[in-house]
Amino acid sequence: MAKDPLAEAGFYFDELNKLRVLEPDVSQKTSELKEECKEFVDKIGQFQKIVGGLIELVDELAKEAETEKMKAIGARNLLKSVAKQREAQQQQLQALIAEKKMQLERYRIEYEALSKVESEQNEFIDQFILQNQSVATTQGVQSHHAPLSFMH
């Protein structure tokens, strides 16, 4: 293969017969590299965009998770306090029940006393009628109304 003197001097011609300092192969590769680099930058940019979106999304999620967590904690606390409230309420109700029970006991005693009075009065009425009869029979017919008269 005969050596091109120009090539020896470092000059080349390309396909368009323009004088070049670089070898056509190298030149081609360089441009290829350039292309590839561009492509790479593009891709990186795209990637960055996607990643940014993702980060945003995750942030949002984190935020949401945080609020949910707070909510959960609040709810849990509420639940706990409800239990306490119930307890207090129960205590109050129980105190009221005790009060009512005492009142009931008082009413029971009152009722007993009243029924005792009732029985006493019934007894009295029975006795009264009995005595009245016996008095009436002994006193005869003309004074029949006499024993009752004083109760009028």
Binding site: E105, E110, A113, V117, F124, A146, F150
Partner: peptide, 30 residues
């Protein structure tokens, strides 16, 4: 303890009082 209790008293003494104030001694004796 706060409970109300009712108690009954025989009715005769009150009657006797009315007889004595109106001087109906026969009725009182009866």
């Amino acid at each position: 303890d706060g409970s109300l209790v009712c108690s009954s008293v025989p009715p005769y003494p009150a009657l006797l009082h009315t007889y004595s104030t109106s001087a109906r001694w026969e009725d009182a004796l009866r």
